[in-house]
Design a binder for these strands. Sequence first.
DNA 1: CCTAGACCCTGTACGC
DNA 2: TGCGTACAGGGTCTAG
Length: 270
Amino acid sequence: MPELPEVETVCRMLAKNIVGQSLVEVKVLRRDLRWPVQLDFEENSQGCSVVSVWRRGKYIIIELTSGSIIWHLGMSGVLRLYDELLYAKHDHVWLRLSDGRYLVYNDPRRFGSVYWALAPLAHVRLAKLGLEPLAAQAEPKIVFKLLQNRSKNIKDTIMDANLIVGVGNIYANEALFMSRIHPRRPAGSLSLEEVQLLLQNIQLVLKKAIAQGGTTLSDYVSVDGKPGYFKQELQVYGRFGQQCNVCAAILEKLAGFARQTVACTKCQLL
DNA sequence: CCTAGACCCTGTACGC
DNA sequence: TGCGTACAGGGTCTAG
């Protein structure tokens, strides 16, 4: 399941492989993704050339000579380059490039979405996105202020893309463990020092995961079909019932969260 | 403005 | 073996 590091990995691969090429043919095989693919998607994007590929949060922006394609991979979406077109189950969109290769979007669960927009950052899905955790504006004081007066637990709060983008369930679990902060702590109760530590660890875990090509749990592969190698580094996610790598206590699965939450309640204090 | 909870979807894992 | 069910997850929407 693609999180920020996986999306970043895909963007880098795409930037290397498709910039400068034109989209010779654009085909949508299924329009009922998470949001319906606009009826004019093909005609808007077809014939344009790729200027650059970058991301905002978990949204991939393929900037074209006219407008941009915005792609969100959802949970199970995969963008891959192929030398030839081989129709596979759950292929929903493909783009034929001027070098003859195909960029194919496959997504079994169809939680992903794709749009064409003239100004991608102004798009309704992107306009209200929060801070980029790896960018310079993500300063502890700013994040501390964002968390003030919030009673919701810190774990679900840092996963809110309207505040901070790109921190999905895996990395939220990991960053809180690294910071020795209990997931159930009210977001507003964290001190500036704790916020600073948490932010540092969010950045650290994201950077490490990017360096390893992301985390492949089951379905994620990059553009070249290769998995990520961060799974072996996970300290808590998916390890409930196993021993904490720091204190050897048994890791617990905690209730009351939007997503699976695992913590060492001996290391991470309320 | 904030929060909790439902919802979208299908492959996988598990119990009987 | 096969069937049914719970679960996984990001992001959005609705109700309170």
